[in-house]
Design a binder for these strands. Structure first.
Lengths: 108, 108
DNA sequence: CTCCACTACTCGGTGATACCGTGTAGTGGT
DNA sequence: ACCACTACACGGTATCACCGAGTAGTGGAG
């Protein structure tokens, strides 16, 4: 699959929110999960910029913990504002994707 | 529905391609179609920038015709490269949207 | 006849986002 | 001693949708 970056704009952050929401986790692991999910070209730098943004926007709670196999990890969990943002994301996604699918099916 | 602009990045251009592909049409009418389709906040300036980009990237054939009710219209039709680009867009859309839906359903 | 509404396109500048490359650091294997 | 893997940070870039203001053409209300 060729370049998906433009299409992921505005959705990748929501995907990261969803991953964090289902389990407290950290940047390196989130990158691996996204890769396995099919977003093969998403790279660490991208995920970290999203995580720093989430932190700056106070949507997550951060806990630093030692790792044992490398440098300490920054674990992220959603707070109330984060859960609200995640819900809004899925609402928007539902809205947009249904309308694009309708356009695709020639429903006009 | 609140602001969808970030989520439309990378997809709005594809939507415009689809609309042009199904019928030779012009910017002002495309804007109206998008609005009726549910993308209520998409505004003329945005559509015109997309159309100029499509023209610059040689994905469309342009024909100017008088209108009778206003200034002349620039009608757009897909050429071969445009049809190819449209097909690629739908392939990407299928790929990305299916994976995001899977993430949403907790399929991980 | 003048003003306004609607139609129709252009263009320079802005903000948000994902990406790229590089750097820093900790652990463990060869 | 070197390399691989893990783990995070950060400055700069490209792309995209949006904003705002401007330019024009037609027709209707006052």
């Amino acid at each position: 699959m060729d370049d998906l970056t433009e299409m992921l704009k505005g959705t990748l952050e929501g995907c990261v929110l969803e991953i964090i929401g289902s389990e407290e986790t950290y940047g390196y692991a989130i990158t691996r999960q996204l890769n396995e999910l099919g977003f093969a070209d998403v790279v660490e730098g991208t995920v970290y910029t999203i995580l720093l943004r989430l932190e700056r926007n106070k949507l997550v709670q951060v806990t630093k913990r030692p790792s044992g196999v490398g440098p300490p990890r920054k674990f992220y969990a959603l707070n109330d504002a984060g859960r609200e943002e995640l819900a809004k994301f899925w609402t928007k996604w539902q809205y947009v994707s249904s309308r694009i699918d309708r356009l695709k099916e020639g429903g006009r």
